[in-house]
Design a protein around this nucleic acid. Structure first.
Lengths: 214, 214, 214, 214
DNA sequence: GATGAATGAGGCTTCATTCAT
DNA sequence: GATGAATGAAGCCTCATTCAT
């Protein structure tokens, strides 16, 4: 969706523009997000933004795409893909720890993407974003189906329901971590890592066995 | 926080203004929400809004308060308060069914309140709103503690973690119901009720026993 | 220019309204002067102001008239009228001391009237105000002519020029006293009276003999 | 205090904006002065004004600065600086004649600056304006001190008092000339020049020798 | 292609005046 | 006549987008 002018920029410049965009929208939301400020902090002219993107909306939308792809490029190697034999909860645990580290390294970006998926910008979603959300949903569904096949996940409940449930159960915890990450400045302390890890463990345990007594 | 001018209006008029407000913010969010349109659809002059409220922000904030209180007034009688002996999950189930009906009857309002608590307007929270959120949090914590005392909830996990988890696990489902309610027009069909009920049951089951195999 | 409704009010009420008016315009000027605030501080309803006066402008204009008349009523007995034999400068001196005391007793009013004559509200002057200004001008002219007749004022310069000159020469000093009166709270100290008196004496001396050397 | 955007404009454009500003404020005062009208009569878009100045107040304040500087640039060469030997009254006379011509050539500007110094916009004064007023005061004090040294001004009266007196005595006359200049259209007739000159002469004479008889 | 000034629609807010009780 | 709520015109200011260089 960006114009060719943008794609012809050096990757460094592109990144600078994108990060400026993401920071601005994180700080002020979409409506109050200011194109002039984005341009300034990216070190380009305001007019240039309009040579790169049709309008504010397109800029935003592409920032989402760009952010997601960066995440994948940067962290995909660390992601173990699910396979037929693995215990799904074991997998989630490992995955979450990875995500935690990612958030550590890419705070702003992580917050941005989270907000997008949490629906903060729900008025802005378009076809491409819906596609991405669909993908991420399929990923979870796939995961659960593997779990059901190898018996690590119960089969008496519909996959879709399980998927939604998982997303939700994970959501608040992530949000919590986001907020803490935000309040904190740059550095993550070891004790915090431990804290996070404990939270994640508890969450996985709950996902697996529920919170019922006995 | 409204001025006396507003409180002196007939309840009918007050309601008309509030519903117009809520509809507008639901439709366009806070920044794009248009005072002129609110006034028009409430059938008052734009200037009148400013005799009722200091500014847009106060209008919004009061709409939240008003919405919550209406919800309570309207549905509180149906809400069973938790008591020492009750099974927490049983309680959640009953509660959710009630909530479901509420959403059916007060679609716009329900969506509005949800959005507020889901953080869509997070820049706007003020002392009074934080207080309400705190209240709702305490409510859940209280619930869980009762459960832990009477053995219906496991005690080896921290109350706060359980509380966050519960909120999250419930959240996506609610959202889902919201969206469906939204897309649908006015009428809820019987089959939908059934569908909702099944979803709720599944969610409670998962909350209780987890999604682990066996 | 006020409507009969105003003139039928008790003098006390009338005074309250007028003083509130004068205070407001002193504080905020005409444009920013707020009818609602005037009403509030006069203890009447905003609508009542419009039953007393046609509009803001008329209210202002009448406040000027009222203020002037009050001044006259209150201080006229103290004012020695000029007579054929008196030394004009002696007369001015006595007059100024009186004015000084008046300012002490009717600070707000004095400031208001001064501002009017100093042209702060020059866009608002109407026929009646021009008439008053003309009167006050004639008063000075008359004074000077007496002086010229009895020899206390030089006759080689045009009366109009002398009149303007006198007004001007007096003006800055008055302004000065006004400002000091304003900054000070309620009380005038004896030393201040002395200070004022010295200033006045110096001014009269300059008026009389000029500031030329020798 | 204007933004760079303004300073980068061609001097012609700057002048056009400034004159439009000054005219508008002369005509309607600050509160009623209309940014849209200023823009229109300067031939720029309303929004542009806000790219030049932070807000209405800054626009006004800069117009004062600009006006003063233009006056200096334009007329400074004609101004004889006071020196130790000169008769102060002679000096004032020459100066006033110059001022008179200036008013002839820059009517609107002259009126504007006069109004500023006469306190018509007293709510708006800021640090920079106070500084200018202080300067102009110092100028007069300096003048008088020279006079006292070389004997052309009496020494038995305080410099500050003399300074205030001079300002005042001059003021009304200037105002008078202003008003006449205003009422008249563009052209100054020769007879008027003569009239002015006579007035000035009379004023100087009064300043010097006073209006006392004999 | 880059730049940054120019544009003007749009929105919040104020408040003199009118109106209904 | 008094009251104070209702009205809506008007104005400052923001800022996405366009334009000229």
């Amino acid at each position: 969706m960006p114009k060719d002018t943008f794609l012809n920029l050096s990757p460094d410049k592109q990144e600078k523009v994108m990060r400026a965009t993401i920071n601005e929208f994180n700080k002020n939301g979409f409506e109050k997000g200011n194109i002039g400020d984005i341009a300034k902090s990216a070190g380009v002219a305001k007019g240039s933004i309009y040579q790169y993107f049709e309008n504010k909306r397109e800029l935003f939308l592409y920032a989402v795409k760009w952010g997601l792809e960066l995440m994948l490029k940067k962290f995909a190697p660390n992601i173990t893909l699910p396979n037929e034999e693995m215990d799904i909860f074991e997998f989630l645990y490992e995955n979450s720890k990875t995500a935690m580290k990612q958030i550590g390294e890419e705070r702003e970006l992580g917050i941005f993407i989270q907000n997008v998926f949490l629906g903060k910008y729900s008025n802005l979603t378009d076809a491409s974003m819906e596609y991405m959300i669909k993908l991420s949903n399929e990923y979870i569904v796939n995961l659960i189906q593997i779990g059901q096949k190898n018996g690590s996940v119960r089969s008496d409940i519909d996959v879709q329901v399980l998927s939604i449930y998982t997303l939700g159960a994970t959501y608040k915890l992530k949000e919590n971590m986001m907020n803490r990450a935000r309040e904190r400045g740059e550095d993550i302390l070891d004790e915090e890592y431990e804290q996070y890890e404990n939270d994640i463990k508890a969450m996985i345990e709950l996902l697996k066995h529920g919170m019922g007594g006995r």
